[in-house]
Nucleic acid binder design. Structure first.
Lengths: 331, 331
DNA sequence: TTGAAAGCGCTAACAT
DNA sequence: ATGTTAGCGCTTTCAA
C-alpha cells in the first residue's frame, strides 16, 4: 500500500496526497478530508524509509552503551527515548558488551542507517577510536566516559571529581583514617576523575597519599570482590573505602561479609550509583547517585537542538548535572 | 559520498561497484580489489536507507517493552540484540511506559520504519489492541504477556502456571498453612496464569480455596507494599505468600519489616524473578527466575527464521523455556 | 489548488 | 566481466 494507491483511488496525484498528509503546501479543505478518510480506510502507513531517502534525514538517533542491563544505562536510554519521542525521532539502541570492537561495528551500522546524531558511552580508549567519532559530521554526545580532550566535544555528565571528593571528605569528617579506594579502569575518565577527587580530599585534609591504598578495578562485581578480599587479608587494612561504582561495591561488601567483618565498624564503604531500589539491601550503601534519566534526556536534547538549528554545530555543550548523595549505614 | 562517486573515481559503473561490495554477481578480481581500496580510502559508507528502499527490506526488528529499566526487559533486549547482531539486523527498541497508547504509537512508528519483524510485551488488553498485531503481515512474537487466544500467535515464555504451582507446592511441603498470593493484574496473562498455578497446587493438596487470601496487585513496588501492609493488619493473616513478581515482593518485604514482623517465621514469601544480583538482599527471596536473555534471543531467532524462509509464516512457534528455581531464606 | 516530473542512493534485470 | 537502465516510495520544485 503506497501513496500512489491512495492517489489513484481518489483520482488525485501523489503530490497532492503527500501534501495533504504532511501539511506542507496548500491543499483544498475537501480534498484533505477525502485523503485523510481514504488513508484511514485503507489503513495506509507511510514508508519512512522512502521518506528518509528523499529527505536525506532518517530522523533517528543512535545510542551505544556498554551494557544495557546495567540500570545506569537502561535509565539513560529511557531518558533519551523520552526526548526522542517528543520530537518524533526514533532511538536506535546498541550494546557494545564492553567491547571496543563491537562498539566500532555498532557505530558503522548506525552510520549506515543514517542516524542524525549519536550518544555514546565509549569503551574505546585508543585515541584513534575516539577520533573516529570526531570525524563524523553529525552531532555526537559523550556520556559516562569522556575522551581525553573532552573540551572539544559535547558531553553530559556529573562532576565526577567533585563527587568523589565529597564522599571522601565526608569519610574524613566522620573520623576514618587510612581511607583507600577501589577505582574504575584508569583508562576511563570516570575512573580517573573519581580517583582525582579522592586525592583532592586527602590533600585538602593534609593527609599524605598512600599508593598502597589505591586499587584499580574494572567496574565489575568480581573485581570489587577480589580486591576487597585481598586488601582485607593484610594486617594494615584501611578503615574506609571509596568504591567507584555499584557493582564493585556489591562485590566488595560480599567479600567483607564472607571474611566475617562488619560494616562500618571494621571497614566503612561509600560508592557511586549504589542506590537501593529494593529497600532490602544491607548494609545500605552511602552513595553518590547520578541523575541517569536526565543524562539521557539532555544528551538527546543537545542533538535535537543542533539538528533543528537551535544550536550551532560548532558550539560545544558540556552539561554538568548535580548528583544526589544518599546516606547509608555503610559509613 | 555515494556509490557513484566511487564508480566515477574508478571509471566503473555503479552496478559494478555495488556488486564488488555486496559480493552478488561476478566481478573481476582486480576490479574488486580496486573498489575495496577506493572505498576504504574514501571512507565510504553505504546508505542503508537507500538500500532498504530498493530491497524493500530494512533489516531491522522492533521490540516494544513496558519498561526498559526493569532488569527483566533489559536482559530480554540484550538477548534479542545478540541474535540480531549475528544476522546483521538492527534492533529498534521502544518503551511503552506501561501505556497502551504509547505502545500503539510505538507500533505505528516501527511499522513506518518498515521493521521486518516485531517482538512485543504488550500491555494492551483490549482484544482490539492485540488484534492490531495480528493484522500485520510481518512476524510478531509475543513475550511476557500473551493475548488471550495465544494459541494462534508466536510466543516465547516460561510455563507460568507450572512455575507458580511449583512454588506453592513447595510452600505446602514446607508445612505452611493459609497460603495466600499477590497476583499481577488479572488482565495480563502472566498475572492470570500464576494465579492458576497457585490454585492448582492448592487443589492438588486438597486445600480449599479462600478468596480472602488472593490479592490483585499491579506488578509495582507500591502495590506489593500496600497489599502486604493491609493483609498483615488482619488478625487472620496468612502464613505464606506467593508474590507474582520482583517489584511487588520488594514492596511486600519492606512492609513486613516495617510492621516489625519476621520472614519466614511470621510470614514466608516466594516470588517470581526476584533474583539477587547484589548478594546483599536480605532476606534472600525464594524465586522462580525466567531465562530472560534466552527469551529475547529466541524471540529474535523465530523472526529471523521466518524472514529467511527457514520457517513458514503460518507455522506457529510457542516456545516454552525452563525457569530456574533459586532457593532463599524467605521460606 | 493541483499535477507532472525529477531525483534521493541503491540494486538487479537485462544487455553487451 | 561490466555497463545501462529502471525503479523502490516518497517529497518538492516547477508549471498549469
Amino acid at each position: 500500500m503506497k501513496l500512489e494507491d491512495i492517489a489513484k483511488k481518489l483520482g488525485l496525484s501523489t503530490s497532492t496526497v503527500s501534501r495533504a498528509l504532511s501539511g506542507n503546501g496548500r491543499v483544498g479543505e475537501k480534498t484533505r478530508k477525502r485523503v485523510l478518510e481514504a488513508v484511514k480506510e485503507a489503513d495506509y502507513t507511510v514508508n519512512a524509509v522512502a521518506r528518509s531517502l528523499r529527505l536525506r534525514d532518517a530522523k533517528n538517533i543512535g545510542i551505544i552503551v556498554p551494557d544495557i542491563t546495567n540500570s545506569f544505562f537502561a535509565s539513560v536510554i529511557k531518558g533519551a527515548q523520552g526526548a526522542c519521542r517528543e520530537n518524533s525521532y526514533t532511538l536506535m539502541v546498541c550494546n557494545s558488551d564492553e567491547s571496543a570492537e563491537i562498539e566500532e561495528e555498532a557505530l558503522r551500522t548506525l552510520l549506515e542507517k543514517q542516524v542524525s546524531g549519536l550518544i555514546v558511552a565509549t569503551v574505546s580508549n585508543r585515541p584513534e577510536g575516539v577520533l573516529s567519532y570526531r570525524r563524523l559530521n553529525i552531532p555526537v554526545v559523550f556520556i559516562d566516559n569522556m575522551p581525553t580532550e573532552f573540551d572539544v566535544v559535547d558531553s553530559v555528565s556529573i562532576d565526577n571529581r567533585a563527587a568523589a571528593c565529597r564522599l571522601t571528605r565526608e569519610m574524613i569528617a566522620r573520623g576514618y583514617g587510612r581511607i583507600g579506594t577501589i577505582t574504575g579502569p584508569l583508562t576511563q575518565s570516570s575512573g580517573r576523575l573519581r580517583l582525582r577527587g579522592y586525592e583532592d580530599a586527602l590533600e585538602d585534609a593534609h593527609i599524605a597519599r598512600d599508593a598502597a591504598l589505591v586499587f584499580e578495578g574494572d567496574f565489575r562485581f568480581s573485581s570489587g570482590y577480589a580486591l576487597m578480599r585481598s586488601l582485607l587479608a593484610r594486617q594494615d587494612r584501611p578503615e574506609a573505602m571509596l568504591i567507584a561504582n555499584n557493582y564493585m561495591a556489591y562485590g566488595a561488601l560480599n567479600a567483607v561479609r564472607e571474611m566475617g567483618l562488619r560494616v562500618p565498624e571494621d571497614i566503612a564503604v561509600a560508592a557511586f550509583d549504589a542506590e537501593d531500589h529494593t529497600g532490602l539491601i544491607s548494609p545500605l550503601i552511602a552513595s553518590i547517585n547520578q541523575p541517569t534519566f536526565e543524562i539521557g534526556f539532555q544528551s538527546a536534547e543537545i542533538i535535537l537542538q543542533k539538528l533543528s538549528g537551535r544550536s550551532q554545530p560548532t558550539e560545544h555543550h558540556r552539561i554538568v548535572l548535580e548528583p544526589t548523595l544518599s546516606d547509608g549505614n555503610s559509613w
